[in-house]
Each structure stands twice: as structure tokens, then as C-alpha cells.
């Protein structure tokens, strides 16, 4: 792999024309399959996730997008195939150490209900016996980054609002300054206004951090707003991947067109989310 490489290798062998400048591949999924009983969740999947970019996995329910994320962090074991993280197979060496290089946020945040927001965020740092002063500084930094009020740090999760809850989940994921953020529908359970604000904030955070982000969503608006690369999945296979403009201008099949259009706009209001991104 050269520094200049294709963002995504498709399982049909086609290389997407658009090239992205990046440091290399964060994840490489090689010929991955996974089934749950009779249900084939992922089939012969090849996928490369570029470093330093935001990749969005999108697709209808049951397309395997959450399973793929779960396999990347080792929660789900693939039936076949290899997953490379920073060029090392996940199955080699201590998985726990690799997980400490990843930050993972799920839809309902998965905050531990018996621990305060602060303890949730610092749990891992304390377990690894990091310097308390550095941890305190880091938590302050994260509060600033995620616009989380420091006064609320000593509340338990049940006392937080939905938006605050997900901010804490994000802070927890970022605490150890991981190489990659894995977000599984992080905004899926929030009401539209908070969701809208958080989308804006997330974009700012992703830009300021310059981290590799892999996000799962089923909202095409959110995907196009946040993602550098969109990977559209269906029935455990990649249908098309690339920049949002590629998927709109150059759809590989009818499903891509239908999926991109399956978003209603409110009459008379401009669709901010679907505007072309100013820096592209």
C-alpha cells in the first residue's frame, strides 16, 4: 500500500477512481463473512478504511453495518476472513490493548449507570493508572471540546439529558486519545433539534481532531454531512462507496439512486444537510 491509495477496494474488484491523500489504512477487512444462524449478516466483504478521514457505513436495517463495526472492535468474531488494525491482524496480540486504541460509542451510549459521568470517562485511565493531573486536564479539554458543562460531571447517567449523555459517551471514547473513533448510530436516539446541533458539533470535533472516524447511520443526510467517504451496504455487501457526490452523480445501480432519494425534504426550506460541502 502506498501513501496514495484507493480509499476503498470494492469486493467486485473495481477501484474507485477518486484518490484520497492519507497516511495509510486504519482497518483492512479481507474477505470477511459472518452469519447469525441462518442469517448471513456479512458476505465476503473487503473493505479498507482510510486513516484520518470520516467513513460512514450506511444502509437499510440488517445490511450488516453494525456487525462490521462490532467486528472491528472485536465484539463480533467473523466466521471467516481477516481484519487488520494498523496493519496487524486483530487476532494477533492482546485485543484489550488494541481496543484501548479505539473509542466506541453506541446508540444509547452504554454509560455505566452506577458511575458518575466523570467516573465513566476516566474509568479506563484510572484502570491504567494514568497520572491523575493529566487525566484531570484531559477531562477539562474534552468538556471544552464536547461543550459538556463541567458541573454535570458528578451526575450519574440517569441524571443527564439525552444530549449530555451522548457527549459523555463521546468523551469516554476520546479519553485515551484513540487512533480511531467507532460510532454506532450515536445520534439515533436523540430528538431532531439536539441531533441537529450535535451533528454540527460532531463535524467540528472531527475536523479539529483529524482522527479516523467510522460511523454507522441510516440517515443519508447525516452521512453526507459528516462523511468524507460513504459506504453504502445492502445485505452484507458493499453496493457502492465513495464521496457523496460520486454516489449521487454516478450511481452503480438503481438501489443507490433509490436510497439517496429516500429522504423527504420539508417544502420551502433549504436542505442544509444535502448542500455540497464548501471545502470539496
Amino acid at each position: 500500500m502506498s501513501k496514495w491509495n484507493a480509499a476503498i477496494n470494492l469486493n467486485n474488484g473495481l477501484v474507485v477512481s477518486r484518490l484520497i491523500l492519507c497516511d495509510g489504512a486504519m482497518f483492512e477487512l479481507q474477505n470477511i463473512s459472518k452469519s447469525y444462524g441462518a442469517v448471513q449478516a456479512v458476505t465476503n466483504l473487503d473493505l479498507t478504511i482510510a486513516s484520518g478521514k470520516t467513513t460512514v457505513l450506511i444502509g437499510p436495517s440488517g445490511c450488516g453495518k453494525s456487525t462490521i463495526l462490532g467486528m472491528m472492535i472485536g465484539l463480533v468474531k467473523p466466521d471467516a476472513g481477516d481484519i487488520l488494525f494498523n496493519d496487524t491482524p486483530l487476532s494477533v496480540g492482546k485485543l484489550e490493548q488494541k481496543r484501548q486504541r479505539m473509542g466506541y460509542v453506541i446508540q444509547d451510549g452504554g454509560l455505566f449507570p452506577h458511575l458518575s459521568a466523570r467516573r465513566n470517562v476516566t474509568l479506563m485511565a484510572q484502570h491504567l493508572q494514568r497520572n491523575p493531573q493529566e487525566t484531570a486536564n484531559r477531562i477539562q479539554e474534552l468538556c471544552d471540546l464536547t461543550h459538556f458543562p463541567e458541573a454535570a460531571l458528578d451526575r450519574v447517567p440517569a441524571q443527564l439529558s439525552g444530549g449530555q449523555y451522548q457527549r459523555v459517551a463521546l468523551m469516554r471514547a476520546l479519553m485515551l486519545d484513540p487512533d480511531v473513533l467507532l460510532l454506532d448510530e450515536p445520534l439515533g436516539a436523540l430528538d431532531p433539534l439536539i441531533r441537529f446541533d450535535l451533528q454540527t458539533e460532531l463535524r467540528d470535533i472531527f475536523r479539529s481532531l483529524g482522527k479516523t472516524v467510522i460511523m454507522v447511520t441510516h440517515d443519508i443526510g447525516e452521512a453526507s454531512y459528516l462523511g468524507d467517504t460513504i459506504v453504502l451496504l445492502r445485505d452484507g455487501r458493499v453496493v457502492q462507496s465513495g464521496a457523496i457526490t460520486d454516489l449521487i452523480d454516478n450511481p452503480f445501480e438503481d438501489f443507490v439512486v433509490r436510497f439517496m432519494r429516500a429522504q423527504r425534504s420539508v417544502p420551502g426550506t433549504p436542505r442544509e444537510n444535502s448542500e455540497p460541502r464548501p471545502d470539496e
Binding site: G70, I73, G74, L75, E96, Q97, K98, R99, Q100, M102, Y104, I106, D108, G110, L111, F112, P113, H114, L123, M124, H127, R172
Partner: peptide, 25 residues
């Protein structure tokens, strides 16, 4: 299970998960 997964995803080893998460819960 989502709490179990969160604890695993954080990279907590099994004994720490038991002590910090599972037993308290």
C-alpha cells in the same frame, strides 16, 4: 448486553470488568 459490550470495548480485562462493572451492577 450493551453495558457488557461497552466494558469490553473500553479494553477492560475480565477481572477489572467483574470488579468495576459486573459486581456493582
Amino acid at each position: 448486553p450493551s453495558l457488557q459490550n461497552s466494558a469490553i470495548a473500553l479494553g477492560l480485562p475480565p477481572t477489572a470488568r467483574l470488579r468495576l462493572i459486573e459486581l456493582p451492577l
